Amino acid sequence: MEYLEFKISCKPEFAEILIAELAEVGFDSFLENEAGFEAYAEENNFDRSSFEEVIERYTQVAEIAVVEGKMEKVNWNTEWEKNYDPIEVGDEVFVRASFHAPKPGVTHDILINPKMSFGTGHHATTFLMLTHQLNLDHKGKSVIDIGSGTGILAIMANKLGAKEVQAFDIDDWCVENGNENFDLNGMSNVRMGLGTVREVNPQGQFDIVLANINKNVLLDEMEVYETLVKPAGHLLLSGFYDHDVEDIEAKANSLGFQKLDQKVKDKWTALVFEKKG
């Protein structure tokens, strides 16, 4: 599988919003640098017209320059070692790679050795989802993580006492990496599935459904999520900017969900919904 690589330079204050915009049109990996960031999209799924529309909209105001290339899908560990900082949620959660030392006194130590890269914005959504999880009772609950990526949220659910954890992703590297990370965190009984939520077709209902993806996918799949959440169960969503909350909330409300909580970090947002019993 080949990836298209776009080296994008821009004014610093526009990097986060551009990453957010590109995440909504099919880009799934970002690497920030001093000039701006690098963005990656699978060649087979690349929507050039949507990409060009985003770039054209911001070109003048953000002083954008783009250099396009192509690369084979590679292991990202080296880049992570240069660019990835641990994710800390107070003294409760510390998400680290193997090259980071443990943090003394932390309640939940999550060890991740990533094969894929994501941008700072995605750190924000992970942070927000972890924070919501800490505020939600997982003990004895069934949890499914949709678009699990490196598996961080599924691992958090397990550490919080979930009795059943399922996870899947559309990317085969994420599946391989997620299973490695599950093993690192004592979850060899959990294996990540491959495919979209419709392709995987999870059976039964869950107490907690997690989905940290992007606005377009969430809106498209929300009706499926509704079938997966038990009455009085919870749906946690992230991967979108604060200006998208109205659209996400309207769709969720139409399906019988009520918003319980909302958190924002660096303009990224994560929402908690409860399904009406």
Score class of each variant (00 low, 15 high):
His138Phe: 15
Lys139Leu: 12
Gly140Gln: 09
Lys141Trp: 11
Ser142Ile: 06
Val143His: 02
Ile144Thr: 09
Ile144Tyr: 10
Asp145Gln: 10
Asp145Glu: 08
Ile146Val: 15
Ser148Val: 11
Gly149Leu: 06
Ile152Lys: 02
Ala154Cys: 14
Ala154Lys: 11
Met156Gly: 02
Ala157Asp: 01
Asn158Pro: 01
Asn158Cys: 10
Ala162Arg: 05
Ala162Ile: 09
Ala162Tyr: 02
Lys163Leu: 11
Glu164Trp: 09
Glu164Thr: 15
Val165Glu: 04
Ala167Trp: 09
Ala167Ile: 06
Asp172His: 11
Cys174Lys: 05
Val175Gln: 03
Glu176Thr: 15
Asn177Phe: 05
Asn179Thr: 06
Glu180Cys: 10
Glu180Phe: 06
Asn181Glu: 00
Asp183Phe: 13
Asp183Leu: 15
Asp183Gln: 14
Leu184Ser: 07
Met187Lys: 05
Met187Arg: 09
Asn189Arg: 13
Val190Leu: 01
Val190Pro: 10
Arg191Val: 12
Met192Ala: 14
Met192His: 03
Gly193Asn: 08
Leu194Met: 03
Thr196His: 00
Arg198Ile: 12
Arg198Asn: 12
Val200Met: 04
Pro202Ser: 09
Gln205Lys: 05
Gln205Cys: 02
Phe206Asp: 00
Phe206Arg: 06
Phe206Ala: 04
Asp207Ile: 13
Ile208Trp: 07
Ile208Glu: 05
Ile208Val: 15
Leu210Met: 10
Ala211Asn: 01
Ala211Tyr: 00
Asn212Arg: 10
Asn212His: 06
Ile213Pro: 01
Lys215Leu: 06
Asn216Ile: 04
Leu219Met: 00
Leu219Thr: 02
Asp220Leu: 15
Asp220Met: 10
Glu221Val: 15
Met222Val: 02
Met222Tyr: 09
Glu223His: 13
Glu223Phe: 08
Glu223Arg: 14
Tyr225Met: 13
Tyr225Thr: 14
Tyr225Ser: 10
Glu226Tyr: 01
Glu226Thr: 15
Leu228Thr: 04
Val229Ala: 07
Lys230Gln: 14
Pro231Tyr: 08
Pro231Leu: 05
Ala232Phe: 10
Ala232His: 14
Leu235Arg: 05
Leu237Trp: 06
Ser238Phe: 02
Asp242Phe: 13
His243Asn: 11
His243Phe: 14
His243Glu: 14
Glu246Gln: 09
Ile248Pro: 00
Glu249His: 08
Glu249Gly: 04
Ala250Asp: 08
Lys251Gly: 06
Asn253Asp: 13
Ser254Arg: 13
Leu255Arg: 04
Leu255Asp: 04
Leu255Ala: 04
Gly256Phe: 03
Phe257Gly: 04
Gln258Thr: 11
Gln258Trp: 01
Lys259Tyr: 01
Lys259Ser: 07
Leu260Cys: 08
Gln262Tyr: 04
Gln262Asn: 13
Lys263Ala: 12
Val264Arg: 12
Asp266Gly: 11
Asp266Pro: 07
Trp268Val: 03
Thr269Tyr: 01
Leu271Ala: 05
Val272Ile: 15
Phe273Met: 07
Phe273Tyr: 11
Glu274Val: 10
Lys275Val: 05
Lys276Arg: 09
